[in-house]
Amino acid sequence: MIELLVDNRDLFLTGFRNTILLFLLAGIGALVVGTLLAAMRVSPVPVLRLLGGGYVNIFRNTPLTLVFFFFAFAYPRLDLLDVSFFTRAVLALIVYTAAFVCEVVRSGINTVDVGQAEASRALGLTFTQTLTTIVVPQAIRSVVPPLTSVLNALLKNTTVAAGFAVAEAGQITPTLSERGASVLIGMVWIAIGFLILVIPLTATQRTLEKRWSVAR
């Protein structure tokens, strides 16, 4: 079993390196875009709320493969900036995952009692101070577990990029079968690889939850 890993280490190394890269870039992008979308959805401006809501409804209900199809086949015809398959895969993952991040962050903000923001404003704190010192620190706590699930799903969704010529971990098995190696054993190794990748995510969740958990 070990020989397969050693013999094809080039394959596993590029595969998982690309998976990690896709995950990190798409994860950061989705967190930023998703948080902005959430801010739009709770803002007092109706147009922004409408746009944010529309975005979430469209992309949360579209299969990821369809989003990938768009970036793989439709995007080049739009005559926009010509970018690599890898970049387009990252974009597809961001566009899709941001909708889920948005809803998680928004539900987190909604768990904070309005009285907290009222007391803060009544003391003379500005809108930004209220958001950053009172609302968000309390919202983040309830957001950590569901946000970890969203990022976990993102990690697994990176395998869809394999279908679009990005050599990430999902691309390993087809290449193994071309080389005549055992696909079954290859899959076991890939599963182990993903398990190892999930460990830091779960550990981070546990640390953050512990740090932010206080009696309330």
Binding site: A122, L123, G124, T126, I134
Partner: peptide, 23 residues
């Protein structure tokens, strides 16, 4: 805006539900 925030700083309010910052 900021002028309102400054004025609110001079007006203390105590709520029925206390509204102490839970964290």
């Amino acid at each position: 805006g900021r002028a309102l925030a400054r004025l609110r700083a001079d007006v203390g309010i105590v709520f029925q539900q206390f509204n102490l910052f839970a964290h």
